[in-house]
Design a protein around this nucleic acid. Structure first.
Lengths: 178, 178
DNA sequence: TGAATTCATAAACATTTGTTATCGTTTTGT
DNA sequence: ACAAAACGATAACAAATGTTTATGAATTCA
């Protein structure tokens, strides 16, 4: 998507470290300012938010070869409201803020890269907001593997229900009702 | 937010035209590829999407001094699913794709501008998705003026209900229930 | 200004969705 | 391998939300 030389790329990647987390580990906590973006080599990460009543809501699942972060608060350097939790043993590449900013300012097309990335995730969110208006939870459940392939074999159903914004009991009913 | 000279700015703005629409006019239709971004000098624009059953859902209100477009499909150059409709007599500045692209490539910090804009709207959407999980329609109704100041004097209640994802009858009940 | 339309509320009823509790199965961790 | 915990389904009931219809007030437009 952008024009980048071998040299530039190697220089960029040399600033990134790899780390492995066990199953069910918290890799980012609410109230902390997010200073890293993670790239998942292997494993799966769940993004949660806890409401005022203490109920946890699953906002997102991040899979292999995807980036994950509280990007909003990474950009704003504000405390996060999200919690990032591994659901399996998970290996990530950590891209610290300093590296990202170095990329913007020193890669020849760094700013363009930043624009394309932000645009990409904007499009993803727009689609999500749109679908919330025009599709029912059942319809979103039926096509969830479009967004999260193989999710049914990796994530318990009550987390999927949470992601859909319904109770696990209700999801169970929807499945039966065909 | 970006470093831009008087000269650059004038050159950029000379590529934009102003246009005035009457109340209740459609300024962008579904199925068309969005090739313009609008800046609202005066008036208000509603963004709608129509589902498979033919029901209209209000996705957004755009007010004075804001930009509005189907940004996702502007970026992707895909047909829009949105309809943009004025709710009052509305004056807009039209920024065609060619101008935006000229800005990216010829303004000294054009790409950075593009990145910051995309990031800004990403943050807006993230907040919206988050709120949909953790807050009830009533709570979102009670704070709607944070996002759309003076909306109650400019937009009928059934459109606000539609934006909140509930029926106008239900909104009426929620208001009464305090 | 007057007639037609849109709008907000209300009530009665139907449907959807959440809550609580139970049960048998599967998974997890030691 | 075993005990504890997590999981998914189900039923009965409660609460929330949608549907239909009606009515009077407000708004729009000719």
């Amino acid at each position: 998507m952008i024009d980048v030389s071998e040299d530039e790329l190697n220089k960029f990647l040399s600033g990134a470290a790899t780390k492995t987390f066990k199953r069910q580990e918290i890799i980012s906590k609410p109230d902390a300012i997010p200073n890293d973006i993670f790239f998942i080599n292997k494993g799966i990460i769940r993004v949660l938010i806890t409401d005022n009543e203490g109920v946890e809501h699953t906002i997102h699942f991040a899979l292999e070869n995807q980036f994950i972060a509280d990007y909003s608060n990474f950009i704003q350097q504000h405390p996060s409201m999200y919690c990032l939790q591994t659901l399996e043993e998970t290996q990530v590449v950590i891209l610290p803020r300093s590296l990202i900013e170095w990329g913007y300012n020193h890669l020849r097309e760094g700013q363009k890269m930043g624009r394309l990335i932000a645009e990409y995730y904007f499009i993803y969110q727009d689609d999500r907001i749109k679908n919330n208006y025009v599709r029912t939870p059942k319809q979103r459940y039926d096509s969830i593997t479009d967004v999260f392939p193989n999710i049914h074999n990796r994530v318990p159903q009550h987390m999927i229900a949470s992601y859909l914004g319904i109770t696990p009991i209700h999801l169970s009913r929807l499945k039966k009702s065909k």
